[in-house]
Simulated scan of single mutants.
Amino acid sequence: MQLEDLRKQIDEIDQTLVQAFAQRMQVVAQVSKTKQEQGLPVLDPARERQKLADIAAQLPPEMEQYGYALWSILFEVSRSYQSSLRPQPSPLRQEIAASMDQTPNLFPPSATVACQGVEGAYSQLACEKLFKHPQVMYFGSFDSVFSAIENGFCQYGVLPLENSTAGSVKQVYDLMLRHSFKIVRSTRLKVDHNLVAKKGTKLEDVKEIFSHPQAISQCSSFLEKLGKDVKVTPCENTAAAAEAVDQSQRTDVAAIASYNCVALYGLERLAADIQDRSNNYTRFICISKKLEIYPGADKTSLMMVLPHRPGALYQVLARFYTLGLNLIKLESRPLPDREFEFMFYFDLETSVYSEEFIRMIDDLSTISQEFQYLGSYSEVI
């Protein structure tokens, strides 16, 4: 049989499937109405499990896995459609709508902002990109930045989340599990690392280099060329490393830091742009204690704890796909107090004014055991 003949057969089968799908969704709408009248939830896990088992049993063994996947997607689509037919907004949607009404139209030009490190840190540079006149307060750890926001000591906090070369800042993601906060804005900062030392120090004199582990990772090629005789010592912050070099009595130490630290600490630049990649960017988030959603917000961040079973993450991704949402970040972190369970962090590209966003918010409770809405915001380029 020719390929074109086979394709015609598939087209005929697809036509039957389209008609059956439309008919099924009409019945789904009736089911949604009946459930709503009886006060029943959209999801009935027991019935869904039984249906999937029945469908798999009707298929040849070699097709069971594919049939299971297909009907799982169909059930996700059906639940999403049922949710869209319910006019009553979820409590979370009501909270978001209230925040959008109460948030000012313009992001504040000045505020008290918490940053990790000391003056000259990249977090400070990101802070100055987000705010016109920030009142920066420095803290020794990322944990302290979160705590400063929770306790109302600072209005906002700025934290690094991921780097285009070294990847995610795992420590910040882990702290997200322990703290209460909302993301109100983000920015990407081009990071150009420099090797800085006391004036008069030559590159061949350097025996030890200090910097933050992320910066060390981003400059691995340069450090390898220096040889094994040069010791690389991690510290809490790039600017703190530059400050330590300035205060040290040694003349054989250097730091990887921003160029701002040269003038700030009276140092000299021994080498410029030592990062592995020229397009080295770090993404920073701006967090607050309360939910603030400013006009133009087109990114949304979520955290979810999903059931420990095959296909749990797939079902969530299928729902995002059904709604036409663009997933731009997915990060998983183990839950410290639970065996083999993970928190999943999602960044989604969707306007807060879109119908897809509203449907996603109303659907969240049906697709996750636990979820946390972290905020909707825009990114400063």
Score class of each variant (00 low, 15 high):
S221N: 13
P60T: 13
K290A: 11
V77Q: 15
L40N: 12
R185N: 10
E292K: 09
Q155E: 12
F340A: 13
N326W: 03
E162M: 13
L125C: 04
H193W: 10
H308V: 11
I73Y: 12
N163R: 05
M100V: 05
S123V: 09
P41M: 04
G157S: 01
I381E: 14
I367S: 04
Y156R: 04
L125Y: 02
V136Q: 01
L92G: 00
K199W: 08
A111Q: 02
F210P: 02
A56K: 06
A20H: 13
A272D: 15
A111D: 07
P134R: 01
I358A: 11
M100S: 01
L70A: 10
L85V: 01
G157R: 00
Q94K: 08
G157W: 00
E62T: 05
T16F: 13
S141D: 03
M25Y: 06
T251Y: 10
P160H: 04
I209W: 07
D54K: 14
R338Q: 14
N326V: 07
S278K: 14
V113S: 00
I96E: 00
P108I: 03
V352A: 03
P91Y: 02
Q15T: 06
D246M: 09
A263Y: 06
Q82N: 00
C286Y: 03
T350V: 13
M1S: 15
A263G: 06
T282K: 01
V113F: 00
Q247T: 12
Y353M: 14
A244R: 11
D174K: 06
S354L: 03
L291A: 00
S278M: 13
V380A: 11
L70S: 14
